[in-house]
Nucleic acid binder design. Structure first.
Lengths: 125, 125
DNA sequence: TAGTTATATGTACATATATGCATATAAGTT
DNA sequence: AACTTATATGCATATATGTACATATAACTA
């Protein structure tokens, strides 16, 4: 990867919330809905969308719209270079550091119907 | 590593010049003098010092003063976690992307006397 | 001590980023 | 069409960062 490109990717990833989003996507093995992030991260919806936009701009995540809902996952790249980089970073994080959020995502996942979200997020935050 | 700590490290590393400094330190297998960085990176001395300070603040590099000169190298950490992280990042960079600077450092290294700098940097830049 | 060289740092300013809010868009529902 | 819900985005502003310059500090030399 070009040095400038790597620096740009790292910049996007160097924000705690965005790093956390990537860690969750790498940890749970399915697409995560925006509304699920809102609940798990306890962030207002606009912040989740803003962070996802930055990650999207760096081609680190991609959104998959299904009706009103948008499901996000880590991007695959041809060489797997970027993907491998992200997974490497996530592996460096103490698991306990995002375990709670993973649990919340799992609970949220179990509440899906036919594998899809139905309820949206809590209005708080 | 704590997630917040990793984000903080990545932030320091997400600047092209600082990433380049780390790449050079990882690539050449000896301490590099500030004056050698000034010549290799073609950056003014104060910028080199400023970037090194930020990397020092994150415990990524350490300086070793010998008289007027200060020689920098990558920090070792007990677990090797941070060091491994940096080396992993550097490995993701296209070698050709910093080969010229490595060459300049080697030339500079060959001009040392008793393994130590003697000449300082060019006043340009 | 004064002078010189190498390195570090404080300050100023322009630009970038984070954050919050309001609102737009997309899509489903009645 | 009007209404509701989920998501995205534009704008404002406070804060952080990059960059440049001047100058301080550290250490050697005469």
């Amino acid at each position: 990867m070009k040095l400038e490109r790597l620096a740009s990717v790292l910049k996007a990833v160097s924000h705690p919330k965005r790093l956390r989003i990537l860690a969750l996507l790498a940890e749970v093995d399915h697409e995560v809905c925006v509304c699920e992030f809102v609940d798990a991260l306890e962030l207002p919806q606009y912040q989740v969308s803003q962070h996802l936009r930055e990650l999207r701009n760096e081609n680190l995540v991609k959104g998959n719209r299904e009706g009103t809902w948008v499901y996000y996952s880590l991007c695959e790249d041809e060489t797997g270079e970027r993907r491998g980089l992200i997974e490497g970073l996530v592996k460096a994080i103490d698991t306990e550091d995002y375990n709670d959020e993973v649990e919340k995502l799992k609970e949220r996942f179990n509440k899906r119907e036919n594998g899809k979200c139905t309820v949206g997020y809590d209005e708080e935050d």
